[in-house]
Simulated scan of single mutants.
Amino acid sequence: MVQQILERVVGYERRFSTLFEEYFDTLSAGLDVPSFSRFTPDCLRLLRELSLRGGKRMRVVLLHEAARLATDEPVEGLDAAALSIELLQTHGLVHDDLIDDSPTRRGGPSTYYAYRERFRDHPQTAMGLTVLAGDLALALSLQVLLDAKVPVAVRQAMVEVQTRAATDTFTGQIIDLERDFTAGPDEDVLHCVADYKSARYSILAPLQLGLLAAGEQPALFAKELRDYARLVGICGQMRDDYLDLFGDAAAMGKPTGTDLRDGKHSYTVRALLAAVDDTERLMVQAALGDRSCTPQSIAAIREIGERRGVPDRMQADMRRYAQQASAVAAGWRSRWREEAVTFFEHVPQWSVERAT
């Protein structure tokens, strides 16, 4: 059954890649843009390039498998929902790269740095156009749902889901920044950030949209869907934070230690500070927020963490939350289809085993 699931995942990814490309092909012709504007087509080009450069498309997979919980028949509205999910993701990437001053994204220049290169003598213009590009992606993510060929009630419910997901994500981005101004944020704060910033739009919204498209009423199962999404979101964020220091830089395609240099009070930083002695704590704290921190210093902190057993403890925590999430999904067997439930049981474990 796992092999069948993996084959379905590949199929979803391939089909969506074609769908996304076709969407941008038609968007340029259908968007109401003044004939004199050169900046608007350029903005659409940058959004297209970023959107089509890849990503795991796991949100699209979750959407389709959520519909399969209710039926294995073709379901109208999934294409529109998939486009909406990934356009909201594009919005988030554009703004995240601006907030983090990131030069690259998915193997190419970030939207912000593409604009900085074009408007070298006009930094405010580059920043403004970056914000507006992200805003346009958000508006398009809602527009595709408004244009979906589904019953009015379903369309309205889908728009409500995505609007709420976007609102929660913005709140998550705000508290993510706030977290790093909090002295020693506790685990509950980190869980809350992971929930709002990631889990609600990456996991909960695809679940809700897929069920809505398939004729279900996700509001009837709100608590268990939220619990599942939150637990998987925590697993995923822990894994991201773990890989940032203890991952394989070659496999990830980026250097380790970014969170430390950026001063982020991540799960890994919290685990480090809880495990080290006073001398080692001073070393970690000196690196935290130091953009000039050398690879050698990052390697030394990694070695300290390994010696203190931080990777093992973090992996044990990830497995614990993954098991809790899988148990929530297992409870769906009495209501929904076996093979789709099995998929959602496996998702948390895949989340904590990934290498990138």
Rank of each mutant, 00 (worst) to 15 (best):
A66S: 14
D25W: 09
V94H: 08
S110V: 09
P123R: 05
A114M: 05
L62E: 07
G77H: 03
S35E: 15
H95I: 11
G54A: 05
V33H: 09
R45N: 13
D32F: 12
S37H: 10
S84G: 11
Y23Q: 03
M58I: 15
I99T: 09
D96L: 08
D79S: 13
D25H: 13
L69R: 07
R15M: 03
A81M: 00
L87T: 08
S37I: 13
P74H: 06
L50V: 13
I85E: 00
P41N: 07
L47M: 02
A80K: 00
F20G: 02
P74I: 05
D42V: 06
E65A: 07
T111Y: 00
L63Y: 03
R116L: 11
T18F: 11
M58T: 14
Y113N: 00
T111A: 13
E86W: 08
R105L: 03
R45T: 14
F36D: 10
A67W: 04
G77C: 08
D42M: 14
Y115E: 03
K56T: 10
L19Q: 12
L63K: 01
F36M: 00
S110I: 02
Y23L: 03
H122P: 04
F39Q: 14
T26K: 14
T40L: 15
F20Q: 13
S110C: 07
P34E: 07
Y112V: 06
R48M: 02
P34G: 10
F36Q: 08
L69C: 02
R118C: 08
R53N: 14
S102I: 02
R15P: 01
L87N: 11
L19A: 13
A82Y: 01
T26D: 14
F119R: 11
E73A: 15
L93K: 09
M58G: 12
F36H: 11
